[in-house]
């Protein structure tokens, strides 16, 4: 399909990076003791909240002067929700991971 090929060409650098990042992700995570699976999942989950940047961009460039025009208001509200959810994911995720890991530290003498 042409649009897919065009997309590939337009984003070729990103796609190279992605291919390498996938290997990096696999490499970093393999050989993790099962004890750490839960905190690791939780930490990775917090990082996936990076969508928050998208929320910031959306709300940041929303046209506050012409809210009535088109779907500007709806988009702003949805954007605020995206930002809210993203923050929940990021802050909640990092805090809960820290709480889990706090336990591990205490054990060490």
């Amino acid at each position: 399909m042409e649009s897919v090929l065009q997309f590939f060409y337009a984003n070729k650098e990103a796609i190279f990076i992605i291919a390498l990042t996938i290997f990096l992700g696999l490499e970093v995570i393999s050989n993790v003791p099962s004890v750490l699976h839960t905190p690791l999942m939780s930490g990775a989950n917090a990082i996936s909240g990076v969508i928050i940047i998208g929320g910031i961009i959306l709300v940041g460039h929303a046209d506050l002067q012409n809210l009535v025009e088109g779907s500007n208001l709806l988009n702003l509200i949805l954007g605020i929700f995206a930002l809210l959810f993203g923050t929940l994911n990021v802050i909640g995720g990092f805090v809960v991971t820290d709480r889990m890991l706090e336990m591990f530290k205490k054990k060490k003498k």
Partner: peptide, 10 residues
């Protein structure tokens, strides 16, 4: 993508 790959291997 990094989290996507890490999550998959996990």
């Amino acid at each position: 993508i990094f989290v996507g790959a890490a999550g998959m291997i996990l």
